[in-house]
Design a protein around this nucleic acid. Structure first.
Lengths: 217, 217
DNA sequence: TCTTCATCCAAACAGCCGTTCGACTCTTTC
DNA sequence: GAAAGAGTCGAACGGCTGTTTGGATGAAGA
């Protein structure tokens, strides 16, 4: 994770004001939701003029979509790289556990308090439920990213009926998408703080263990 | 599921107009989201006057919360009943599989196309991500419902570290909450229709199998 | 028959929304 | 040094938001 293009909090092609808007918008959207944050909230947080959003991005929805597109591409790249490395380690046929780890590890690592990507992953999780029409269209049609993981799982478990593999992949995605601030808070409340200790790597191990066990039969 | 108090689509204590508003609001909120649906959308859909929402419910947020409270209570009751029945079958100590089934089966049965509760479960799923402050407060503080399931799991697996049990419960909840229209559509697209055939009971079996396997070690 | 009361209705309210406009500033280019 | 262009600014636009108001309606009770 030393690639500058990946760890750069805000795309460096942005002008100063544009970058401020991008960062403020991502943060506010991630914390409060897309509809509850106004253009005025964003520009006030960024300390720039109200018209900046429309000047640099065209519209509020276009700003939302640019953040979505940027972060989605980064996450997909990190996942694809891990899947590729796993394939290299196993002569083109990675086992189920390595495939699941490539799917799970990147977003969980981003979510780590020490990372600069907590906001980005919360934004992406939100975009599934309350995204723009353009976002949902992109999520619905662009399945090429998930295609690779589905194909890898199908190849790793040729003994299973394909629909069984697809459903289990769906369950794993549900586990990942449920790691929102509010849900984790509730878990920590329920466990009376027992679950709060985990760092990213421990949580990844727990999730991969659980998911791999789900694929065991 | 023959209890009238549970299968009643709209609480029968409501007056005619109040019931129309309740039903229209639940449907529109479930399909389009909470923030995107206006009071005017609701009253137009219900065919009643604009002021009806404020007259019968006080405010838009209060209407949202009443739907949330009603459906949450019904779902919790159905789950608690299944857990209770499982405890009766096993002399007070139900196995992991029966506990998970009590958690999973009710919302999946509600989601069945033949049921009259598809809207309700979609509404409840949405309330986790985009709910009112009052809703999130209720979800955060009222853990008494989940408490029973966590305690049952802890009792069924005394060999596991408690935090491990809590995390696995969290993963199972993620599987359940991911059954939104949009996510299922994407799954069906990815699988090229293979996953579309399943009825509620088959899906419940798949989910319980997966979750139980996650608890196997 | 008169009163009471819950319900319903059209209309208006104040406020916030995303977006646009025209002027102004500053740097770059010829 | 003039022209051009990108960026920023305050101000305003039309439209939609949730909510409120005051009167009309009609059934129930004395």
């Amino acid at each position: 994770m030393t690639d500058a293009a990946v760890t750069e909090p805000v795309p460096e092609t942005h002008a100063l004001t544009k970058g401020l808007v991008f960062a403020a918008a991502e943060r506010l959207f991630a914390v409060h939701g897309f509809q509850k944050v106004s253009v005025r909230d964003i520009t006030a947080e960024a300390g720039v003029n109200l018209a900046s959003v429309n000047y640099h991005f065209g519209s509020k929805d276009a700003l939302l979509f640019e953040i979505f597109r940027t972060r989605t591409a980064e996450l997909n790249r990190a996942r694809a790289r891990m899947l590729h490395e796993a394939a290299d380690r196993h002569r083109g046929h990675p086992p189920v556990r390595d495939i699941l780890e490539a799917l799970i590890a990147p977003p969980v690592r981003w979510h780590d308090p020490n990372g600069d990507r907590r906001i980005a992953v919360q934004f992406l999780i939100r975009s599934r439920g309350e995204g723009t029409e353009a976002m949902r269209e992109a999520l619905r049609t662009d399945v090429s990213h998930l295609r690779r993981f589905a194909d890898a799982l199908l190849a790793a478990r040729p003994d299973l009926a394909p629909e069984e593999v697809y459903w289990r992949l769906h369950f794993v995605l549900g586990m990942i998408h449920n790691n929102r601030f509010a849900e984790l808070d509730r878990l920590h409340t329920l466990s009376e703080g027992l679950t709060r200790e985990d760092d990213a790597e421990t949580l990844i191990r727990r999730m991969v263990d659980f998911a791999e066990a789900g694929f065991s039969r």
